[in-house]
Amino acid sequence: MSVLIAIPARYASTRYPGKPLVSLTGASGTEMTLIERSWRAAMAVSGADRVVVATDDDRIRAVAEGFGAEVVMTSSDCVNGTERCAEAHAVLGGGFDIVVNLQGDAPLTPHWFVEDLIAGLRAAPEADIATPVLRCDGMALNGFLNDRKHGRVGGTTAVFAADRSALYFSKEVIPFTSQIYADDAPTPVFHHVGVYAYRPGALADYPTWPMGPLETLEGLEQLRFMENGRKVLCVEVEARGRQFWELNNPEDVARIEEMMAAMGLD
């Protein structure tokens, strides 16, 4: 099954304008833009047939082409990454069996997260979309709770059924637990990793659906699939000692740089 990885990137982010071009410093002091680090993460994925950056901004295009990425220009009317991936797939003429959305704000995404995701969707013909979830340890959960306490949008959490079909995604910390966990203890909370693998039919349908109330309230694009009765498969992935975080706010730059330093990633 042929696989396209599309990296949606827009300059006019509401929470963090210009985010794709923000510089992140690695463990040995190497500076690299967020979009280049995300592209390098995509290029490390085994089994991908093509990797493109999908954007509507000439500044991002120039930077991406400068470090060797293939760029697909998309409309500024795309309201989220899924719509941008749908347009990019169409611009390329379609034909891929799986389209992966590796969001341009997740430079710490390990290649095995995406490889496990692709394998999970291949093994679940009843699913229209698959997305990874990572069980939080106490340290990660406390970080989520601290962000919410201070009014910051941190990571997204997910709850799912016994068959791993998603029940809900939220920027709040769900499910509720009153228990206190040690930093290295497993918790019942799962961090949703912002990567998606779509079957092309469901991806093509997505932009034709109106934005529903849950997507509007949460600002989470995957809820549109669920609001339209499409099955979203949650694929549990293993951290293997790697820390993971997405760049959602300016404050996250220092957090991600600290993680890269701790893991020796340049």
Rank of each mutant, 00 (worst) to 15 (best):
M1V: 10
L4S: 00
I5V: 07
A6L: 03
P8R: 06
P8N: 09
P8V: 05
P8F: 02
A9C: 01
R10Q: 08
R10E: 10
R10N: 11
Y11M: 02
S13F: 09
S13L: 12
Y16R: 09
K19P: 13
A27Y: 03
M32R: 15
M32L: 10
T33Y: 02
I35N: 02
A42H: 06
M43T: 03
A48M: 07
V52D: 01
D58G: 10
A62V: 03
A62W: 01
G68S: 01
A69V: 06
A69K: 05
A69I: 05
E70Y: 00
V71D: 00
T74Q: 05
S76P: 10
V79Q: 14
T82M: 08
E83Q: 03
A86V: 14
A88R: 03
G94C: 10
G94S: 08
G95P: 11
F96L: 13
V99L: 04
V100R: 05
V100M: 03
L102E: 00
P107Q: 05
T109G: 10
T109F: 14
T109K: 13
P110S: 13
H111C: 07
W112C: 08
E115D: 08
D116C: 09
I118A: 12
G120L: 07
G120D: 05
G120V: 07
L121R: 12
A123N: 09
P125Q: 00
A127C: 14
A130V: 09
T131S: 13
P132W: 08
D137P: 04
L141R: 03
L141Q: 00
N142C: 08
G143F: 04
F144A: 14
D147A: 15
R148Q: 04
K149S: 15
H150S: 15
H150W: 14
V153I: 13
G155N: 08
T157K: 02
F160P: 06
R164W: 06
S165Y: 06
A166P: 04
S170V: 01
E172D: 13
V173W: 13
S178A: 07
A182F: 13
D183W: 06
D184C: 11
P186S: 14
T187V: 06
T187K: 05
F190H: 04
Y206P: 10
T208F: 07
P210H: 13
P210G: 11
P210K: 13
P213R: 12
L214R: 06
L214G: 01
T216L: 08
L217E: 14
L217V: 12
G219K: 06
M226C: 00
E227N: 09
V232S: 07
L233F: 14
L233D: 09
V237S: 11
A239I: 07
R240I: 05
Q243F: 15
W245L: 15
N249E: 15
E257P: 05
M259W: 07
M260R: 03
M260S: 02
D266A: 08
D266W: 10
